[in-house]
Write a protein that binds this DNA or RNA. Structure first.
Lengths: 186, 186
DNA sequence: TGTAGCATGTAAGCCGTTACATGATTGA
DNA sequence: TCAATCATGTAACGGCTTACATGCTACA
């Protein structure tokens, strides 16, 4: 998924995290903190990039003038707190308006395995679906707690909508898994 | 997603296509045909690899003794029709039983953009969601026609279940999009 | 006769991960 | 003082895509 601008969707996602941060603070975010935010939000709709990728990506955003490190402390060790720049804001805005919107990509190992269900015993399939349901519940609970943190705050209206979307998705998965489980038993 | 065996999930997915083919024919499949089948089925739950990747992957499966080209015709041009080997079957079976089952990965550009909804005008967001709904309907129709081809044939029970799963997912997406659209207008 | 579909492959390069390497700060 | 957490980075490598290159076959 390469953008015309030369930035990947993940770059824009990280730029998005910087935008949110800038609404409440001017201190910027460290790579480490960006990773934490990605883990608690982006993970559900996109991916949570590895630490190493975040540092690489921040380097690139900086090189392109879209993000800037403030409060650099260089002793023996460097620490950089990044903020989005005006150019970063307009690049993000431009991407939102003019960027091509791809259809979602779903990589679903459980569905893929079920496709080959005839190679397994029913009890094994049943176990696989049960295991998935457990994981789904766990994920749902994690997202639910994110949702609760977002509350009804108008500022966080959109993140809340997206969280609700995610919860709806997990519920829908649980529902169909229940049905498929039953169908498997007949 | 690297497997202990050194094969990627995509390798196993392609091996799965060969298994299905072997149930109805002994002629094997060309890379080209594998691509077509991936496009019409795997695409919905996994990915449809590029042609070039399929050829690379077939070369690897052959090197590992998991698939074999039969009916090689080498004039000026090579054509190979691949079949799964016994070792391929047992490798696939082993993966199904012992392979680690990862949680699905969803890369959802529309959700990602909605997250940053405060950077856009409501009318633009509305347009984005409408566009997504159109794409969803198209996708759904494509999957529906796959579903219809599968019919009620007992041999195709599992592919049918997975297709129904996919249809359920698309319906769930349409539903939540409708709700979010309404919520956006308030 | 020409073009669409069948068929195969290589090369370059991006995205992203894991493994590795290092060091600072905080609190039990 | 030790461990956990904060913090940053490089190297190697796999998966996958796009671009490029080539040729056969059926049929309109």
């Amino acid at each position: 998924m390469v953008m015309a601008s030369g930035l990947s969707t993940t770059s824009y996602a990280l730029l998005g995290l910087l935008v949110f941060d800038s609404a409440t603070s001017t201190n910027g975010l460290t790579g480490y903190e960006i990773k934490q935010r990605a883990d608690s939000t982006l993970r559900f709709y996109w991916t949570a990039p590895a630490m190493s990728q975040i540092y690489t990506e921040m380097g690139r955003l900086h090189a392109d003038g879209l993000a800037e490190p403030v409060k650099i402390r260089s002793g023996r060790r460097n620490t950089r707190r990044y903020v989005i720049t005006d150019r970063g804001r307009s690049a993000l805005h431009d991407w939102l308006i003019n960027g091509e919107i791809e259809f979602p990509v779903l990589k679903h190992p459980i569905a893929l395995r079920l496709l080959m269900g005839h190679l397994l015993e029913p009890v094994q399939l049943q176990g696989m679906l049960d295991g998935y349901r457990l994981q789904l519940e766990k994920r749902r609970a994690e997202l639910q707690s994110v949702r609760e943190m977002l509350g009804t705050n108008a500022e966080l209206k959109f993140p809340a909508m997206v969280a609700d979307w995610g919860l709806h998705y997990y519920d829908s998965e649980s529902e169909i898994i229940k049905k498929l489980s039953r169908r498997l038993r007949t």
